[in-house]
């Protein structure tokens, strides 16, 4: 735990704040959770850098997949889950494709995102997708411009999905409700002031 400097001067305290990493800053359960959800051997990372070297997001941001792997291994849960860069992975799977230790760093990111969500850490656009699927069955639902376009093509105005067969919606909603996903999504969006 970082030592408090109690200098009575917030500016100095901020500038000189303790940067050490102490043993109880690490949460070994975090690594276990990450491994369980990602179903990959995250602990075997030897920091070769092939992943970041393959990453399309790295050259245009501060996102470093290798660093997230390191945080996983060292159990630095807070740092990992609170870093906004966690959401810059496009899941292109190039890192997973090339990792010499046969680890799936992409799945580690997905696992960390799942774990972040449990702490209500999640960008709004993801929650909007949940709501759309809950109400229409689609992440990108139909609209009227499209309906007339479909009609001109000789297709049904709505595709033969939940759009045309709304009786399948309760099934989808039940599944989402089983995991309380909709209520959590609604709650988080409300807290942020939708």
């Amino acid at each position: 735990m970082a030592t408090e400097k109690n200098y009575g001067n917030p500016e100095l305290e901020a500038k000189l704040r303790d940067r050490y990493l102490y043993t109880n800053d690490t949460n070994p359960e975090f690594l276990n959770d990450v491994k369980k959800v990602s179903r990959t051997i995250a602990h075997m990372c030897f920091q070769c850098g092939t992943c970041t070297g393959s990453c399309p997001s790295a050259p245009r941001s501060s996102y470093r997949i290798r660093l997230f792997m390191r945080r996983g291994v060292l159990g630095l849960e807070k740092e990992a889950l609170n870093d906004p860069d966690l959401w810059l992975c496009t899941t292109c799977y190039s890192c997973t494709d090339r990792c010499p230790r046969d680890i799936a760093p992409t799945d580690v990111i997905m696992a960390m995102r799942n774990l972040a969500f449990k702490y209500d850490i999640v960008p709004r656009n993801f929650l909007k997708t949940v709501q759309l699927i809950y109400t229409t069955g689609h992440g990108v639902p139909n609209n009227d411009v499209n309906r007339s376009a479909r009609e001109k093509l000789g297709l049904s105005r709505d595709p033969p999905t939940t759009h045309s067969y709304p009786e399948f919606m309760p099934g989808i909603q039940k599944i989402i409700d089983h995991y309380k996903l909709k209520e959590n999504a609604d709650r988080i969006l409300a807290e942020e002031g939708q």
């Binding site: 959401w87 997905m110 997708t129 949940v130 699927i133 689609h138 033969p160 999905t161 067969y165």
Partner: peptide, 20 residues
Amino acid sequence: LKGAGCCPAPGAFGSIDLNV
């Protein structure tokens, strides 16, 4: 395929809850 819905979008949905 009657009654199909979103696949669901792996990036958007999988990021939140892989079980769902």
